[in-house]
Write a protein that binds this DNA or RNA. Structure first.
Lengths: 335, 335
DNA sequence: CCGTCTCGTTCCAACGTTGTATAGCGATGG
DNA sequence: CCATCGCTATACAACGTTGGAACGAGACGG
């Protein structure tokens, strides 16, 4: 079931069958028809490995994310698969589990001609880890820029978005706004940027911040959010709002608040980040920053595309995509 | 950067380099060392396309799911990727969006030597759609068995699990238990099986069911669950429990109940299905059926493995994996 | 000292595809 | 009627890899 068999069956050369299959060259109608009949009759399927070997391209791009079962990343994966289809690409998904080691593996080992490019959403990756990388295939990084590498980079304006979210809370009269999601290790860039936005908003409004209102977490999940909320409720002066660095932290925190009998948003307003589906249907529904995932994925793949076909050989590109603040019940109550 | 370049650099034949790389044949220590030095020095990366062409295998399996951003399927994807790693396989994820057409495409077109096997979680697929399929690569179906095809099949005992969930509600004294998630189109096998379990539990307990308690939905998402709950609350005799055919329906329904001031579980108890993370942290947390996803993925890939390497050429296998009922607050209240 | 055996290495072919160069052939124009 | 042109179809090589056959050199026993 290769071109050869079809060629024999149709009584033409292998190349002619190839020409019919790909349709790039003119083939006379009678020949074409004869070949097409054989093609169907024998149920021909092109061997992509052979094609890839010949052309040096695989038509596959890798998407590496920390964990596929985190809602944000599965939404990102969906957007990426959709955007990839526009380029005729197939997406191969890798899970790094946030392990720096895996992330390095992917960046290094991806050069095995299995994929034409990589979209990497790094979690723990620091500048040092990529110092000596031998460039194999083009890579696009998502999220905060961790270092000055040779790779393109796409993200939303994290600082600006965090500032907007905080300003929204300040605008509602909240004055003790906790920041939930700070992280100890220096490499956690996203947390750092969102914390910075929170600070900037306070400074711009002339509202003082206090260290006790910064809640650190191990991970960006519900459990950590719930635990952080527990700690914040124990403060002498409890916060009147929580700005959580992602929706899962926020949802976990809201569960704690509900269990403790704290009303949202009356007693404590809550804002999240990422706009995952759960937040739309929680009680109360969650105010959040909604990144434009479709654009994010599209831009990432466009950059990759231009690197792969060589139409862009310039310096690393930096692309910022849009976001908007979705105001829901967790800050303004029921309509 | 192929074996050839390395061979020249090390002063040996191409095959010897290949032997060193794969380590299957004995190579004398001095030769091996010399080759390995060249390997590292030149930064050799095997060309997987060529390898695959030669061996007729790609080491890639496809996982086709309706939507990656549905929590159940992203959890399934994670489990599959993990299980695949045990076989040394890479997973390529396809989204069908529930389109029968896409599902057929995948089953047919997957034969393009891009993947060695397919794990398919069908949604709309009916018997007719696969009638004339020409088998190319082995396929394992997940979920309900839609037809008597030539493919292996892995699932939990849907009827039994649904019965257990319903029995749990009956055991709590509930007598008007709505079934949320019935579907009109005949091909929706999962919904049919869970509905059957709900019926069987009622029959076994001698509790009558009524048609008005069966709520049909368009999709298995929160929105549909919320809408179904609205309708059920309007009945003359409102239900005192909801058995929802998945967690997303349940969470959507719980939101409606909360908005309407209906207390869960005091007024209405709620049970879901799938055990997605959101249900663990909702308020109240959701009682649900937890399928053993790890086993599901492992069994599916084991079956696939045996079909691919030809060690199993027998008739289609049928594997049932475990599940358990997780009792949480939405049925028994806070501890 | 020669034949045989073993072990490491090389040579050759093939996997299925496609780009390039070329051959075939009818039609057209001088 | 021959030279030329335009177009289709063919032949060949190459992409990088690996299985198998063949080969050569040293070890060993007779």
């Amino acid at each position: 079931m290769g071109l050869k068999q079809v060629a024999e069956h149709a009584g033409v050369s292998v190349k002619t069958v190839s020409n019919v299959v790909r349709g790039t060259v003119r083939v006379s109608p009678p020949t074409r028809e004869r070949v097409e009949r054989s093609l169907i009759q024998l149920g021909y399927r092109p061997n992509l490995s052979a094609r890839h070997l010949r052309q040096g391209r695989t038509g596959v791009v890798a998407l590496a994310v920390p964990a596929l079962d985190a809602a944000y990343f599965s939404a990102l994966a969906r957007a990426t698969i959709t955007a990839a289809a526009a380029h005729g690409w197939t997406v191969l998904i890798d899970q790094t589990d946030g392990a720096v080691e895996r992330e390095i593996d992917i960046m290094a080992g991806a050069g095995s001609h299995l994929v034409d490019g990589v979209v990497l959403s790094p979690l723990g990756l620091g500048a040092l880890d990529l110092e000596g990388r031998r460039p194999t295939v083009p890579i696009v990084l998502l999220g905060e820029r961790v270092f000055d590498g040779p790779d393109d980079h796409v993200a939303i304006d994290n600082v600006g978005a965090a500032r907007e979210a905080t300003e929204h809370l300040l605008g509602l009269g909240r004055r003790r706004i906790a920041a939930v999601g700070a992280q100890e290790h220096a490499s956690a860039g996203t947390a750092r940027l969102r914390l910075q936005g929170w600070r900037e908003a306070h400074e711009a409004a002339g509202v003082p911040t206090s260290a006790e209102l910064v809640a650190s977490v191990e991970q960006f999940d519900r459990r950590s959010g719930a635990a952080a909320a527990e700690r914040l409720l124990c403060l002498d002066r409890a916060p009147d709002a929580l700005f959580c660095f992602n929706d899962q932290l926020a949802l976990g925190a809201m569960r704690t608040l509900a269990l403790r009998g704290v009303r949202v948003p009356d007693d404590v307003a809550v804002v999240g980040f990422d706009d995952i589906e759960d937040g739309e249907f929680s009680v109360p529904s969650l105010t959040t920053v909604s990144p434009d995932l479709r654009s994010l994925a599209r831009e990432a793949l466009d950059l990759l595309s231009r690197r792969i076909d060589g139409s862009d050989t310039g310096p690393p590109r930096e692309v910022t995509v849009g976001h908007r603040l979705l105001v829901r019940e967790s800050t303004v109550g029921r309509a």
